[in-house]
Simulated assay, not measured.
Amino acid sequence: MAIKVAASLALTIFLALSFGWDKPYWGAVTVIVMATTESYGHAIQKVSHRLFGTVIGAVLGFTLISCFGQQRELFFLSVLSLGAISSYMSARSANGYVYKMAFIVAIIVSLAGGLSEGYSFQLAVIRIQETLLGAVCFSLVFSLLWPESNAARVSRKQLAVQSKEAIASKREGVFRAIKFIFITIVSWALWIYLSIPDGFMFPLLAATLGVSMVEFSSKLMNKMLGLIYLWSAIILLEYVFILPMLETGWQLAAFYFINCFVIWRLFYRPEHLVVRMLGGQFLVLMTMTAQYLTPVYDINSPLQMLLFLSLVLITVKMVSQLVEELLQHRLCNSD
């Protein structure tokens, strides 16, 4: 498994650079997401949901820009509404991942493009290209290298049954929606009143992480923060001392292969899923400037991203803890 995941990641980055695409990390993140599922069948289902959500999110992003690009208050209310719906449906629908992906892509298309229709269209096209590339590379490698037996594959009927069993209660859906609303309000208030730099990057991270983290309890956030700082320290050292020495695409692909292999080989147990997921995504995202067609090595970029992530995750933890305590208090009073 470690070899297959590492080969998928390295192949995706190498091919993206060979095609002249400037954001290989989106394809690489697709590989990481597929690799952290339970089986190859789950991975294929997840990538189909990811692609479907990406297309819907691109349309939603253009709609937000067209309707509210010059009306910031209405844009913010639209983000709150869409995020709350996505958070609710992530608990209540068997296709909850589609809702989350649609919202995340809509935010990326609209905010990363600076609310500009022209650049946002270009981002949407690149996003779809990279997602497809990651899915194709993952499927190709897993089909050719030690393919799963028919007995190990999961049928669509079994996947549908498991998805229905995973649907949470209506209360959990409302709980997630409330958490998202408060996380977004607090994060955007920090962005406005603290004058956080780098344009829309902080509210973009807050919205995407907010909808992704609402399903986790506040207790898990402490472990996540510890893992983030651990991975960040290792990756930053490599970013400073190793990556600037790599000059060709195959050398960069080899770098990601070795790191991804180590992560999946050391943390292979089912209970290590979060460790693998965070390690893989941080490996890709904190070194994203090295994946540009013209690489940029500036330690300020990954440090700033680490700061933004820390602020957002601390906000998520505090809001989640507050909402959980209020809900627990309400349940006790009702009893």
Rank of each mutant, 00 (worst) to 15 (best):
D22P: 05
F75A: 08
V29H: 06
G20V: 09
C137E: 01
A151H: 10
F76K: 07
H272R: 08
L252R: 05
M318A: 15
F75G: 00
G61C: 04
F308I: 11
I13N: 02
L307Y: 08
K179T: 03
G53W: 01
V284P: 01
A28H: 04
A94Y: 06
I126A: 13
S93V: 04
N333L: 15
T289A: 06
L123H: 02
R153W: 02
T36W: 05
Y25V: 12
Q122T: 15
V33F: 13
P295M: 07
M101W: 04
E238N: 14
M288I: 07
H272F: 08
P295I: 08
F75Y: 11
V174L: 13
S66V: 09
R265A: 15
I65N: 04
I56A: 06
E215G: 11
S232P: 03
T184H: 08
V186R: 05
V141D: 10
E148F: 01
A166V: 02
T184W: 05
P244Q: 10
V5W: 09
S110G: 04
F62Y: 11
P203A: 09
F76H: 07
F261N: 02
P270Q: 09
L311E: 07
C332T: 15
S310P: 01
G118T: 15
I258E: 11
G280F: 05
F121W: 13
S232L: 06
S86T: 08
N95M: 11
R127M: 04
V47F: 10
F267V: 07
S320M: 07
L273T: 13
S48F: 14
V161W: 06
M201R: 14
R330L: 14
I183W: 01
R153A: 08
W26T: 12
L313P: 00
M201N: 10
I44Q: 13
P24N: 12
S139D: 08
P203D: 04
G20K: 10
Y193D: 05
Y292K: 13
L331I: 09
V174F: 11
S39E: 07
G61V: 02
L60M: 08
L273E: 10
D298G: 06
V98H: 00
L133R: 05
L331G: 01
T248F: 03
S155P: 00
A254N: 06
K157S: 14
I263H: 05
A43W: 04
E247R: 12
